[in-house]
Structures are given as C-alpha cells and as structure tokens.
C-alpha cells in the first residue's frame, strides 16, 4: 500500500532498503575522501554545467565569467515552495 507523503520544502528521495549490502573486498583498499571546503578569499571552484535559459538549452562554464561579478545560487529543487 502506498501511503500519502507529507510534502516539505526539500525534494523527497528514495534509497535502498533492507539488509546492508556488504561488499566483499578482494584486497584492502584505502578510501580517502577529502572534503575541500570552499573559503572566502579563495578561488571559486570552476565547473561546467548544462542548463536552460530563455527557451534554449545551454552549457555554462564558470570561468567564462571571469571579469564579471557572479552570484551563484543553489536551491533544493524546482517546484519547491520557498
């Protein structure tokens, strides 16, 4: 039975349920995760991203905006309320 979901401001997502899948490791591996946190006064990490603007699908590279002031805004998802 599907139950009705409460709607919040973040986009709900699913994920795997049940027993944890444990991977059999053939050889010990070192997982090194480095979280490179951005800082004020440091370069904004460059990226390329596809997008939509005024009736056209486009590709944007942040470094193409060098020489201009840029405001980059992230948000939880389209059709969210706030």
């Amino acid at each position: 039975m599907a139950e009705e979901a409460a709607v919040g401001c973040a986009r709900p997502t699913g994920g795997p349920v049940g027993e944890d899948v444990t991977e059999v490791e053939a050889s010990p591996k070192i997982i090194k995760e480095e979280r490179t946190m951005v800082m004020v006064g440091q370069k904004a990490p460059d990226f390329v991203a596809p997008g939509y603007q005024q009736g056209k699908f486009i590709n944007i590279k942040l470094s193409d905006y060098l020489g201009k002031w840029v405001v980059l805004c992230f948000y939880p998802g389209d059709f969210t309320f706030v």
Binding site: A44, V70, V71, C73, P76
Partner: peptide, 9 residues
Amino acid sequence: VEARGRFII
C-alpha cells in the same frame, strides 16, 4: 538535494 547556498564571486 542542495541547500540554499549563495556565493558572491
């Protein structure tokens, strides 16, 4: 999802 982050570059 992504939080409401706003960066002035």
